[in-house]
């Protein structure tokens, strides 16, 4: 039998708890969910222990007949959720990118203060913060009151329960996830490189396109992934600020586990969502890595 030297032993001791923890609390539930998605739904929730691929068929295009029918609606919901997640990524990025530059140029005590302010919402519950947005956005809310008193509008705007409110809420919730990685890559950007580019005759726009953006791309990618993944599964914001008028993949999963008591189908939807995310993220990463290699 092969024996371990001291360093390997030390490594083993150090890594074992983390590995065990991850496998029990991360892979374990994932595995249970994967298995459940192939089981027959119990009449009153739970699962029956027989192989049942029809939950997948219901989403992806094959089904067995009476109860499980293929319905394109589930893929539509997934795509709609992906659309909302992408919109959230785009808006948070547009917002965070310039602000990151602005803050990174501040004196250091202001910097810390601003970063603290951006991370501050993390300290309170998301539900509470979304209630605050309801108070702002509703017809008699602060936003309309201010606009009315300034004479900008004559009638209250229909802000609440709209697509705008949903985007606003999503952006608000996910801004810190985008900001922190983008900020760290902006902060690490050597200002000399920008000078060098200008010095070599590049206009500010060219400098942005050829130096600043490629150099901060890793932060942008990390931020995008960090926002996209939870945004895809988020259903609280569409429910609370959008009035639940459109269903997101997250609502659908919730519905399956609760009102509809179809755990395997809920697990199936979750698995498909996870696979979809893996696909999107790895495609993204592959493309970037390829680009880095080619360059």
């Amino acid at each position: 039998m092969r024996s371990f030297n001291g360093q390997q032993k030390q490594l083993l001791v150090l890594l074992t708890p983390a590995t065990l923890f991850l496998s029990v609390f991360f892979l374990g539930p994932l595995l249970i969910m994967a298995v459940s998605s192939f089981l027959e739904p119990g009449l009153y929730g739970g699962v029956e222990w027989s192989f049942y691929p029809w939950s997948y068929g219901r989403v992806l295009g094959w089904a067995d007949g009476f109860y499980e029918e293929f319905d394109i609606v589930y893929l539509e919901i997934l795509l709609r959720s992906a659309g909302l997640a992408l919109a959230t990524v785009a808006v948070t990025l547009l917002l965070c990118y310039p602000v990151a530059f602005w803050i990174s140029r501040m004196p250091s005590r202001w910097k810390s203060f601003c970063i603290f302010m951006i991370a501050l919402p993390f300290f309170s519950s998301m539900i509470i913060r979304l209630y605050a947005w309801i108070l702002i956005l509703r017809d008699s809310g602060f936003a309309n009151q201010i606009l009315l008193s300034l004479g900008i509008i004559a009638e209250p705007l229909d802000l609440m329960y709209s697509g705008t409110a949903v985007i606003l809420g999503m952006v608000y919730i996910f801004v810190p996830f985008m900001f922190l990685p983008v900020y760290s890559s902006v902060e690490n950007l050597d200002p000399k490189l920008i000078k060098a580019s200008q010095d070599l005759g590049a206009t500010p726009f060219t400098t942005f396109r050829r130096v600043i953006f490629p150099m901060t791309l890793p932060g942008v990618i990390a931020g995008s992934i960090l926002v996209f993944i939870p945004a895809l599964g988020n259903f609280v914001v569409p429910s609370m600020l959008g009035g639940a008028k459109v269903v997101m993949i997250g609502n659908l999963v919730e519905q399956q586990f609760l009102a509809s008591r179809n755990w395997p189908f809920g697990a199936t939807l979750s698995m498909i969502m996870i696979l979809f995310m893996l696909l999107v993220v790895s495609f993204y990463l592959l493309k970037v890595m390829k680009k880095q290699h080619a360059a």
């Binding site: 319905d71 589930y74 539509e76 269903v247 609502n251 519905q255 009102a259």
Partner: peptide, 19 residues
């Protein structure tokens, strides 16, 4: 509702997906 829950699930999903 027993197995009838599935019918409700479909009505509900359809309704909530409609715009």
């Amino acid at each position: 509702l027993g197995t009838g829950t599935r019918l409700y699930d479909r009505v509900w999903t359809k309704f909530r997906t409609a715009s």
